[in-house]
């Protein structure tokens, strides 16, 4: 859902990776627990405000795709329940879930995340593997989009599109990346069993405190509104 540019000088980009990931995870869990569309709207508003303050420029295509998906989910739920509030609840919940983690992924360079995880003394192989999943998720998603676009340009049939047209080329792409990446790591003398040192370790700053405080306040307001009811 999220692809486009996020400036490296933005507020969100400079935050501590674990603070960002922690807030996104908390918001995702909260979105699944809250039931009032206004509380869910507040969580969504928080992420949209982050976009604005980070000077994020979404691609028109991603925006359109996301809006279409949310509209489809909303319509599907409306026809299933005949209740506008229920339909809004599911669409807003899905929007928060789809935005939370990708916002953090787009705003966290993999090196920063690895440095932050290094503080937990996890095995280096696990840190690098997690980093690859995190980093290559948007890359593989983009590859799928390009494969499907190429198929459309060739005018291939819909029925065969998923297997011959998408899955098989994606398997080739995954193996190709795996080959190139492992070669690059081996050339840099990476050993999964060897201990690793880090030159720069991220530290918490006042901006992290401000961000975590604002997120906690929004979460509290959404929770109170959901539990006690919103005024009016």
């Amino acid at each position: 859902m999220l692809s486009g540019g996020l400036p490296a000088t933005s507020f969100l980009y400079r935050l501590h990776p674990l603070v960002k990931v922690g807030v996104a995870s908390l918001f995702t869990v909260a979105a699944l627990m809250l039931g009032d569309p206004r509380s869910l709207g507040l969580l969504l508003f928080f992420f949209l405000a982050l976009f604005v303050t980070s000077r994020y420029r979404p691609r028109g295509r991603s925006l359109l795709g996301g809006a279409l998906l949310l509209a489809l989910v909303g319509l599907g739920n409306y026809f299933a329940s005949r209740d506008g509030g229920e339909a809004a609840k599911y669409s807003l919940r899905l929007a928060v879930v789809l935005l939370g983690v990708p916002v953090c992924a787009a705003a966290t360079p993999p090196q920063q995340l690895a440095r932050a995880l290094a503080r937990w003394r996890l095995p280096p192989a696990l840190v690098v593997s997690l980093l690859l999943v995190w980093r290559f998720f948007p890359v593989l998603k983009e590859e799928v989009r390009e494969i499907r676009e190429a198929n459309r340009l060739r005018g291939s049939g819909r029925r065969q599109e998923w297997y011959r047209g998408v899955l098989v080329p994606l398997a080739f792409v995954v193996l190709e990346y795996a080959e190139r990446l492992s070669l690059a790591l081996e050339l840099r003398a990476f050993d999964p069993a060897a201990p690793r040192t880090w030159y720069l370790l991220p530290r918490l700053s006042w901006q992290d405190g401000l961000f975590a405080g604002a997120a906690a306040a929004v979460l509290l307001a959404a929770g109170v509104g959901d539990h006690c009811g919103w005024p009016g």
Binding site: V128, L132, V133, V174, P192
Partner: peptide, 15 residues
């Protein structure tokens, strides 16, 4: 596991 195996596992998890 070797480096190649970790990388393949990570990319398959990504897929």
């Amino acid at each position: 596991f070797s480096t190649r195996e970790y990388v393949l596992a990570a990319l398959l998890a990504g897929a």
